[in-house]
Simulated assay, not measured.
Amino acid sequence: MSDIAGTVKRENAVGRLSAQEAAECAAYAEDYVGYLGIAKTERRAYAEAVRRIEAVGFRELSTFETLKPGDKVYRGYHGKTLMAAVIGQEPVANGINVIGGHTDAPRIDLKPVPICEKGGLAYFDTHYYGGIKKFHWLVHPLALYGVIVKPDGTKVEVAIGDEPGDPVFQITDILPHFGAEQSGKKVSEAFDPEDMDVLIGSAPEPGADKDVKETVKRNILRLLAERYGVTEEDFLSAELELVPAGMPRDLGLDRSMITGYGHDDRVCA
């Protein structure tokens, strides 16, 4: 069959690359995969972006007394939004070139008072952010990232789940042979977001009296106090997010693709 006049022929660009171009493309992609593994939240994306632009000569705007053509400047906002610029030769009135991107991605956020105990198990009470397919987040290992601000203003960075030996967290689901009712529902109705609590522990506080309630929750609070020096009240001034645990990987036997959390969102940044 002959081609239809006016249609666009789509070809795989990889086949047209020279050996040098293919090597440059692979190196760029490898660097991007490294960025993707670090930048799992907006705050981490911001910090990594600042590190990278400072390495090529950008400086914080407040360090300049005056600006001249060629100066590389940046300004951050609350550790989550970054603006960088190279000062041009012509007045701003003549126009500027702007490139924008976003670094947020669907995730599971902790509520302000998140730790609860139900049925002898401890959970994080959560709500989701972004357009998620809820069933994608069930029974997958999750990592916890974020910051807790203590009453004295001290910021405590939290990162649990991606380092070797770290524990992970999980949203549980009903077993298939008990899930006939769930299977008969529409996907949009089968998974209630209010049931997407994240399992974080099952061991009671060591030495707890049998009459003491919520000993599993008490044990979780004890562990958090030991590791981070925080209390339950400190969670009121925290920003904590759960994201899929694990690093981005090459996809396919030919390693021609990338799979990893946030890829669809952060590729634009």
Rank of each mutant, 00 (worst) to 15 (best):
S2V: 13
D3N: 03
G15I: 08
L17W: 04
A19K: 15
A23F: 09
E24P: 01
A29I: 13
D31A: 12
D31C: 01
Y32A: 06
G34S: 15
G34P: 11
Y35A: 05
G37I: 09
I38S: 08
A39I: 07
K40L: 10
E42D: 11
R44S: 14
A45L: 07
A47L: 10
A55W: 00
F58M: 12
E60C: 09
L61T: 13
T63E: 04
F64Y: 15
E65F: 02
L67E: 04
P69Q: 06
Y77M: 06
G79C: 06
K80R: 15
K80S: 04
T81S: 14
T81E: 06
A85T: 13
V86C: 12
P91K: 13
I96Q: 09
N97L: 08
H102Y: 06
H102E: 04
R107F: 01
D109V: 00
D109F: 00
P112R: 12
P112H: 04
P114F: 08
P114T: 14
E117C: 09
K118P: 00
G130Q: 09
G130R: 03
K134D: 01
H136V: 03
V139T: 15
L142S: 01
L142M: 08
L142I: 06
A143C: 07
I148K: 02
V149Q: 11
P151K: 06
D152N: 14
K155F: 02
V158T: 07
A159M: 08
G165I: 09
F169D: 05
Q170D: 01
I174N: 03
I174T: 15
P176C: 07
F178W: 03
G179N: 14
E181A: 13
S188W: 00
P193T: 11
G201D: 07
S202W: 03
S202Y: 06
A203N: 13
A203I: 14
G207L: 08
G207K: 12
A208C: 06
K210M: 12
K210W: 01
D211F: 01
V212C: 04
V216K: 05
K217P: 03
K217Y: 06
K217H: 10
N219K: 12
R222V: 10
L223P: 04
E226Q: 14
E226F: 01
E233W: 02
D234I: 03
E239W: 02
A245G: 07
P248F: 02
G252Y: 00
T259K: 13
G262N: 08
H263P: 00
D264I: 08
D265H: 09
R266L: 11
